[in-house]
Write a protein that binds this DNA or RNA. Sequence first.
DNA 1: AATACAAACTAACACGCGTTAGTAAAACAC
DNA 2: GTGTTTTACTAACGCGTGTTAGTTTGTATT
Lengths: 198, 198
Amino acid sequence: MTEVSSISRKEQVIRVAAELFREKGYVAASMRDLAQKLGIEAASLYSHIKSKEEILHVLCFDMAKDFMASLEKVESKQNLTASERLQQGIIGHVEVMAKDLTASAVFMNEHRHLSQPFLRDFLLLRINYINRFKLMIEAGMANGEFKKTIDKKLAVMTLFSSLNWMPLWYDPTSAIEPAVLGKQLSDMLVNGLKQNPT
Amino acid sequence: MTEVSSISRKEQVIRVAAELFREKGYVAASMRDLAQKLGIEAASLYSHIKSKEEILHVLCFDMAKDFMASLEKVESKQNLTASERLQQGIIGHVEVMAKDLTASAVFMNEHRHLSQPFLRDFLLLRINYINRFKLMIEAGMANGEFKKTIDKKLAVMTLFSSLNWMPLWYDPTSAIEPAVLGKQLSDMLVNGLKQNPT
DNA sequence: AATACAAACTAACACGCGTTAGTAAAACAC
DNA sequence: GTGTTTTACTAACGCGTGTTAGTTTGTATT
């Protein structure tokens, strides 16, 4: 290799593909579109990748791995209140997303076009991730920190909806840092919009 | 027509198409798939619809019309607090979605495959709808009902994320009614997860 | 200079796509 | 009963799809 510092051509292909998949959706994005964006012929792509789906696979599972790693880091911490743990989980999630908003958008919107058995694997990972956030919320309800009146499924789904749509409106050039955004988001979900009477 | 009570064949085609578009996505769903679901040949579809996109157009804009009508009803009410108005807006939105979860999912996920100028029209409607919810939140911040510390864009985007993902997890056969769900959702966003000190 | 490898090319493949043209049969209205 | 409308059919169109085979070019290593 000429320069050790530069990313491989394969990574470059995948990165440009992510942008394309985000813009047009996985199915509507053609390999010829992708090749054009890279300034090469469509057939040349196959010197770097095995198939179109391999790109999607890499994008989805790389993101999944990062999300999992972030969550495990939070889970390993001791002596946190439920609010704190939830907040740190949310901040971690936002930070992972912010590191690659394009891949995050693909991860969120296009994973369903994975074929079996990868789709099954992906969905199992996802369920697992969500359930571990659900446990945080349940812990808060159990120790009186959170209300018990709110439906758990609603709570966790609202949380994930909020998180997962972020790539669609978050401006990466904005001054606001991911950690701050995550904090604001968790504050909103935990404390609500209403003025506190304190 | 033989029976006035039965829906037209065109409506039937669109309804089945909605299910298909939801399952596979608009681009991945082929007219041959759709025809098979209806037990006819693909070419026969064109006795009822002008094009594949017409189906998407009808699905998206019919939903948009319902959302707008619901919002206008809430806006016309007098003497409501910001919380009440927001809650009723949310309940209305949930009710419209619950009336046709399939079309709602298509509306949310597939609208981007509309071609111009329909896509532009659609996005303008959507921005307008979101802005009117934003006004409700701003009114609450202005009169001291809501905190001013929360970023408005974050607040309204969190709201819409939560709302729009509902079709992906809401179980239409569940005992919980749309109005109740909407109420819980608005309660969560307004008051938060945390136990109130009252 | 010889070798190895990465990265691109041209040409083509089989296939599925949305859609049109023209037609046939059934169900309706009068 | 005749004319009209609805609903479906068969056959085919041009085009875009992901992908392959085989080859060439340039660069880096020995």
